[in-house]
Computed example of a mutant assay.
Amino acid sequence: MQEELDAKCVCVCKQQEEEKRRQKIEIWESMQQGKSYKGAAEEASSSTTVPKPKTDKKPLRGADYNPLTGEGGSSCTWRPGRRGPSSGG
């Protein structure tokens, strides 16, 4: 009985490895054709998926905002607390 189970396991493992190898080949070929990685994986899994509607992404701040210079931001600034132990009595 154990030998039969071992033989089935080997067979199933080989099939899984072959499927993974096929998927990797499909992904590589799609990348060679200039398609995206996700597109190939989705096509391999199912071709009946509905694409999501694209939304316009607007920048959160204006184009002149630069956090490194401190220009263009709000008037509120953060300053770190004092270093060292508190002065007590």
Rank of each mutant, 00 (worst) to 15 (best):
E3Q: 01
P51W: 01
R61A: 12
T49N: 04
E3A: 02
S87D: 14
R82N: 02
K38Y: 10
G84Q: 07
S87H: 06
W78K: 03
K20M: 15
Q16M: 15
K38P: 00
G89D: 11
L60P: 00
P80R: 07
G88A: 12
K52H: 02
L5I: 12
K38M: 15
K8F: 03
W28I: 08
Q2Y: 04
S87F: 12
L68K: 15
E4V: 10
V12T: 09
G88E: 13
R22E: 15
R82C: 01
G39K: 05
T69E: 11
P53D: 06
S45D: 05
Q33A: 15
G89V: 08
A7S: 06
R21M: 11
Y37W: 09
K54M: 03
G89F: 10
A63P: 08
M1I: 02
A7Q: 06
G39C: 08
L5M: 11
G34D: 08
S87V: 14
R79I: 11
G72C: 12
G84V: 07
D56M: 12
T69I: 10
D64Y: 11
D6A: 09
N66K: 12
E29D: 05
E18H: 07
D64L: 14
P67T: 12
G72K: 10
S30C: 11
G73S: 13
E43P: 00
K35R: 14
Q32M: 11
K20G: 05
R82Q: 02
K52D: 04
G39I: 01
K14Y: 04
E42G: 01
P53S: 08
L68W: 12
T48V: 06
S36A: 14
G84R: 02
S30M: 08
S86K: 11
E4F: 07
K58Q: 10
P59I: 00
Q16G: 08
G73F: 05
D56N: 10
R21W: 09
M1Q: 03
Q15T: 09
V10P: 00
R83T: 09
D64H: 14
G70L: 05
A44F: 11
E71C: 11
G70W: 02
R61L: 10
Q33K: 14
D56C: 09
G34H: 06
S74Q: 10
K20V: 14
K35P: 00
V50Q: 07
P53A: 09
K57T: 09
V50A: 04
E42D: 14
Y65P: 05
Q15N: 09
L60D: 06
E42H: 01
R79V: 13
K14L: 13
D6H: 02
G34F: 06
M1G: 04
N66H: 13
K24P: 00
R83Q: 09
E18D: 14
K8M: 08
E3L: 01
S86W: 04
A41N: 01
E19A: 15
S46V: 09
V50M: 07
Q16Y: 14
K8D: 05
R79A: 09
D64V: 13
K35E: 03
D56I: 15
K58S: 07
P53I: 04
E18W: 03
M1S: 07
L5R: 07
D64N: 12
R79T: 13
E71S: 12
S75P: 04
E18K: 08
P59W: 02
Q23I: 15
G81V: 01
K57D: 06
N66M: 09
K54G: 00
A63Q: 11
K57V: 11
V12S: 08
L60V: 09
T69G: 13
E42L: 10
R61V: 15
K8E: 12
